[in-house]
Design a protein around this nucleic acid. Sequence first.
DNA 1: ATAAGTGTACTATACACAGTAATACACACA
DNA 2: TGTGTGTATTACTGTGTATAGTACACTTAT
Lengths: 134, 134
Amino acid sequence: MILNLDPRSNTPIWEQVVHQIKELILREILLPEEKLPSVRELSGTLLINPNTVSKAYQELERQGIIETLRGKGTFVSASIIPKADDQKIMELKQQLKQLFIEASYLGIDHQTLSKWLKNYSEELGGKDNHAESE
Amino acid sequence: MILNLDPRSNTPIWEQVVHQIKELILREILLPEEKLPSVRELSGTLLINPNTVSKAYQELERQGIIETLRGKGTFVSASIIPKADDQKIMELKQQLKQLFIEASYLGIDHQTLSKWLKNYSEELGGKDNHAESE
DNA sequence: ATAAGTGTACTATACACAGTAATACACACA
DNA sequence: TGTGTGTATTACTGTGTATAGTACACTTAT
């Protein structure tokens, strides 16, 4: 598995791993029940510390996205149920608001942002996107 | 000036100050040419270090949003011109993509996000919203 | 001139966290 | 038994935030 990591980014490496694996699952490149690379293997290919990979896997498991079986490996969860965590939704809205403000100062209006969102939806969310009938 | 700061947030205090002042300007609570509180005054009311306020002001000036006059004070820029910085736009799109992914795992679709964006636009962007002729 | 108020610069310190490194442990499976 | 899993622990380094204190340059009003 090859991920795009930026050591100079301000977002921690383990968080970048979390983000990109979630994206791979959304894109259905990683399928339910599929086995992920071992901690040591992935740390080898990504040239990062095993502890960093472990931290990413633990965070993904905490979110219910992957499951780990001691001695066997880590696997994509069979069914990923979207959790309507109110706390996280509030944080997301706050983040969206901040993003809108930054966009405003770049001369980008909300309609353009919505258009981009729609593109991302078509590009990534081919799964439960209710798009089959379109 | 009263801002809502969260010392336990992972975003630095000076960055929170930057964000909230940008929002106040968008809301037209802070008007062009208006004087901002002095570094020492704001650090007093916010109970933070003057250096932290100074860092926020310097970042705002770097973005062309405020202007500082030595010995006189800091003021909101007379005209804030949206700069179409390609680099920043790319970062914004990346951030929006990540936000969409997180939303997907919370069961929120792109249409809901667009609706929220529209709300923010009406709530905040009453200024140069090209809404005069519409 | 003098004083007060402005932003700025500099050094030092404390603290938290990311990341690395090395090691050891518990479990599954052939 | 041996190899490959994930996990836990400890120590160390580096980076960045924030605080604290001090000093400087400038503007304005007295």
